[in-house]
Simulated scan of single mutants.
Amino acid sequence: MISTNRIFNIASDAEFNSLALDVFKFQFENNPIYRSFCDLLYKHPADVKSIQDIPFLPIQFFKSHHVVSSANPIKKTFTSSGTTGTLTSKHHITDLTIYRESYLTGFKNFYGNIEDYAILALLPSYLERDGSSLVYMVDDLITRSAHKESGFYLNNLDDLKSKIHQLEEKSQKTILIGVSFALLDLVEQFQFNLKHTIIMETGGMKGRRKEIIRQELHNILQSGFKMNEIHSEYGMTELLSQAYSKGKGIFECPRWMKIITRDTEDALSIQLPNKTGGINVIDLANINSCSFIATQDLGKVYKDGSFEIIGRFDNSDIRGCNLMAL
């Protein structure tokens, strides 16, 4: 078994690559679905010498199969949102402490101590269903923030506006994390001039509004909140880690997560940086399910490891954790 201490204390690219190969071997041996997928590709541990050789499981498998690499009992199942009649992804979690360590360590690396912030959450589409991994994470962040002003908001935008103004008057560092359509609703009804608040968007329109490109979304939010940059979170039901953008739609990963792109015409061909392709995610925190996932997002990875999301494959469905406005 691979220790979480090794996962969350990666200090170099060499350590990441070495651990990724060990995780591949572990999941090849312990995940029947992933093993079958690798068998179909004739990709076995003896054939895999670098992370470029590792097969990436198509994300659709989380809709149709039980993707688990552990014999331990399921403690929680996170589900994606979906329109009526569509299959939803199911991420079966055997160890919630790994998820908590991933998002808490990731948040601290990007933003510092959670106790320094008031956390406001405007996530109506997520709160209106069960099984959201985002709600689980944000609820824990709210609890750990230890600020009585922290909390969730559904449709009570007047109360949220008043709370934001109160926190601004106290110069309290605040993060408002919200789904895109609800943030647009907020700035259409009220005007702000924020100096102590971070606005973090975390998803598309969920069928509530017409999809727009991220730059247009950020321009509207920057104007409505009177701020220079809008932050973003990139995560999904099938992952246990998040990447963050502090502006301009450029994301960075925590040390145990990596994005690479694949050729849009050849799903098995890994691309060099600076070329648009399909997004493949390595999430080593996913030790008990699958750490190597081929998503339906399109994006570009830069030489420093940062990346941006450009769109989605035309034949992909609009999923609940899609973080790129189309």
Rank of each mutant, 00 (worst) to 15 (best):
D130H: 13
I175V: 15
E149D: 13
D139L: 06
I199V: 13
D130K: 15
H165I: 13
G178K: 04
L167P: 00
S162G: 01
F192Y: 14
L160R: 03
Y136N: 08
V179Y: 08
S180T: 15
Y136V: 02
S133M: 06
D159W: 06
K173V: 02
H196T: 11
N156C: 10
D139M: 04
T202D: 02
I175K: 02
E188A: 13
D130W: 05
E149T: 08
T174H: 02
L160C: 06
S145L: 06
R144V: 05
N193L: 00
K195I: 08
Q172G: 00
I177G: 02
D158A: 10
E128M: 14
K148E: 14
G178L: 08
S125T: 15
S162T: 15
M205L: 07
R129Y: 08
A146D: 06
K170A: 10
F152T: 11
G204C: 09
D139K: 14
I198K: 11
S171P: 00
L160Q: 05
A182S: 14
L186Q: 03
A146K: 14
Q189G: 05
S150Q: 02
K195L: 09
E149G: 01
M137D: 01
I199R: 03
I198P: 00
I177L: 12
L141I: 09
D130E: 15
I198R: 08
H147D: 12
S132P: 07
L194D: 00
T143G: 13
M200E: 10
T143N: 14
Y153I: 05
I175A: 08
R144H: 13
H147G: 08
V179R: 05
G131K: 06
L157N: 01
L160M: 08
M205W: 04
I164G: 04
A146Q: 12
L183N: 02
D158E: 15
G178H: 06
Q191F: 04
K170V: 04
G204E: 04
G151S: 04
I199P: 03
L176Q: 06
L127Y: 01
A182T: 01
F192A: 02
E128D: 13
I142D: 01
G204N: 10
S180A: 15
E168H: 07
L157T: 02
I199T: 07
Q172I: 01
H147K: 12
Y136A: 07
E188H: 14
K195E: 10
V135S: 12
